[in-house]
């Protein structure tokens, strides 16, 4: 199990790209933190979640 935005999910083994696709976002408007470290955009497809990982997906919306 991995924790994504505070929710325990059965996503161990999935890539960051897979998880963003499941969330319906392409990755252009997000920042992804895995275990308190930023995941560089270039590494989304090659970063796979392991059991016990904690991931935060910050989705940005327009306005400022």
């Amino acid at each position: 199990m991995v924790k994504i935005n505070g929710e325990l999910l059965d996503k161990a083994g999935c890539s960051v790209t897979d998880i963003l696709a499941d969330m319906g976002t392409s990755g252009q408007r997000v920042a992804v933190e895995l275990n308190e470290s930023i995941v560089p955009k270039a590494e989304y497809s090659s970063t796979f979640l392991k059991d016990g990982d904690t991931m935060e997906v910050v989705r940005f919306v327009g306005g400022g």
Partner: peptide, 28 residues
């Protein structure tokens, strides 16, 4: 103001300048 620009700045700072404090805004 634009979402993709917010994400660009946040990712760039977090990736390249991990010693900085970053305060962002989204959703108002």
């Amino acid at each position: 103001d634009k979402a993709d620009q917010k994400a660009m700045l946040v990712n760039c700072v977090l990736e390249n300048m991990p010693e900085k404090y970053l305060v962002a805004g989204s959703g108002m």
